[in-house]
């Protein structure tokens, strides 16, 4: 799994024009990766050539279409700003797929996304639907601002097998409240949770699942240098002491493996 140079097939802003959150969909021609990648895995991507920024960034995979690898990301800092300036036809350096993905051996999966946590969960939903599973996909956002087109396209994409529900804290889209408010109803049906989002949200999801005895897989992120298990930078506090590496034992872990108090 040497590093690859992948051509940018397309690179579009998918958040609403003029809205504050700037969300981009990057499509890379990377058949070497798309052949192997499983939902929940990630790639390390150099956002720009040269020595500054120095490190590659981990990005979860949003989907696979033929030999194209899809990455959905939000502009959050210097690295993603540089990435957002990359044009169609340019090449980017990356390596992967890396890490442990979701266990898709579940019967009635409830997918719980907070904000950009929807990036890897769409890939998981697509794979589950392809297996013939019915999927409940819950998505929580602070507000609808910027996300309305993205949510509409997700709803269109979801089709009949994926039941898409939305909650916003300001009530501007879907139900007003946190995504966890949608969980009791979904768990009346579902028997497994796959979650990705901010840590406080994941902690709440993990608690709710533990109370109900529902197995819960969480996708975690941490500052990461190498992505291959060597630097030990991406430490996640483990239940029972010590640390797990987000890049190797994760990014998807059983919620019971994680020490939520120390995280």
């Amino acid at each position: 799994m040497a590093t690859l140079r992948a051509e940018v097939a397309s690179h579009d802003r998918v958040s609403d024009p003029g809205a504050a959150p700037e969300i981009f969909l990057l499509r890379l021609r990377a058949p070497e990766i798309t052949q192997k990648v499983r939902p929940g895995q990630f790639v390390m991507l150099k956002v720009a050539a040269g020595l500054d920024p120095l490190l590659a960034r981990p990005f979860s995979v949003h989907g696979v279409e033929g030999g194209d690898l899809l990455i959905l990301y939000r502009l959050a800092g210097k690295g993603t700003r540089l990435l957002s300036q990359v044009k169609e036809g340019q090449e980017l350096t990356l390596w992967g797929p890396l890490g442990r993905g979701f266990d898709l051996n579940v019967k009635k999966p409830v997918l719980v996304a907070g904000g950009m946590g929807l990036a890897p969960l769409r890939f998981a939903a697509a794979a589950l639907a392809k297996q013939g599973r019915e999927v409940s996909f819950l998505c929580g956002l602070p507000g609808g601002d910027g996300f309305s087109e993205l949510c509409e396209s997700l709803e269109r994409w979801a089709g009949s097998q994926v039941n898409f529900s939305l909650a916003t804290e300001d009530g501007s889209l879907g139900v007003m409240g946190l995504v966890t408010a949608l969980m009791p109803e979904a768990l009346a049906w579902g028997d497994a949770v796959l979650a990705c989002g901010p840590i406080p949200m994941l902690g709440a999801v993990a608690r709710l699942c533990a109370e109900r005895g529902v197995p819960c897989q969480v996708s975690l992120e941490a500052p990461m240098a190498c992505g291959v298990g060597a630097c030990l930078g991406c430490a996640i506090p483990a239940a029972g002491g010590g640390y797990l590496r987000a890049c190797q034992e994760g990014p998807v872990m059983d919620a019971a493996q994680v020490d939520w108090e120390r995280l």
Binding site: A222, P223, M224, A225, L232, G233, C234, A235, G242, Y243
Partner: peptide, 9 residues
């Protein structure tokens, strides 16, 4: 076990 995170910057 090593240090508490964040460990790198």
């Amino acid at each position: 076990a090593g240090n508490a995170p964040p460990r790198i910057r």
